[in-house]
Computed example of a mutant assay.
Amino acid sequence: MIVCVCRRISDREIARHARAGMGFDDIQFELGVATQCGQCEGCARDVVAQCAGQCPSANISLASSLEEGRTWNTSAL
């Protein structure tokens, strides 16, 4: 369903970005949703909130050192 008529942005596109870990402000910046007439903001926020409740996000931690973060054997180079 089209949520933002001005920018022609669908609920699926908003949900895809929300599943990728983006919040409403990030999605608004990226897609331009709710930046013209503003009539879609409530619906767009609802889509983001519903997806955030259903879609788990990845728990990614950074390596504490360069050696810990290596994913291949560089000693053969």
Rank of each mutant, 00 (worst) to 15 (best):
E67L: 10
E41I: 08
Q36R: 08
T74S: 09
C43G: 04
C51E: 14
E68A: 15
Q54W: 07
H17N: 14
Q50A: 09
A63P: 15
A49S: 15
R7D: 07
L77C: 04
N73W: 06
D46G: 07
S57G: 15
I27A: 01
Q54S: 15
I60F: 07
Q50E: 12
N59R: 12
L77F: 06
R12F: 06
V5R: 12
F29E: 10
E41A: 15
Q54P: 00
S61K: 13
D26C: 06
G42H: 07
L62G: 07
R45L: 11
L66C: 04
A49V: 08
C4M: 04
R8C: 05
Q39S: 09
Q36E: 10
L77T: 01
R7P: 00
P56C: 03
G53T: 05
L62E: 12
I14V: 13
I2T: 13
C6H: 12
Q36Y: 11
H17A: 14
Q54E: 13
T71W: 13
M22F: 13
G53Y: 02
G38Q: 06
V5Q: 11
R16N: 12
R19V: 04
I60D: 03
C37K: 04
E30M: 14
E68W: 03
Q54N: 11
A63E: 03
R16H: 11
I14H: 07
T35V: 10
G32E: 14
I2W: 02
S65T: 15
Q36P: 00
E67W: 03
I27E: 00
F24M: 12
F29S: 14
C43S: 09
G38L: 12
A52W: 01
N73G: 04
A18G: 04
Q28W: 01
S10R: 03
A18D: 02
L77P: 00
E13H: 05
A18I: 03
V5E: 14
G32I: 07
S75G: 01
G42P: 04
D11F: 09
A76Q: 08
I9P: 05
P56K: 06
H17E: 15
N73K: 06
S65Y: 07
S64Q: 15
D25T: 03
S57T: 09
R16K: 15
G53D: 06
E41N: 06
A34W: 05
Q50H: 09
S65P: 03
G42N: 09
G21I: 07
T74A: 08
C40F: 13
T35R: 14
A15S: 15
S75A: 13
C40K: 03
S65W: 02
V47S: 08
M1V: 10
D11T: 01
F24Q: 02
F24D: 02
C37T: 04
C43R: 13
D26S: 14
F29H: 11
Q39T: 08
P56Q: 04
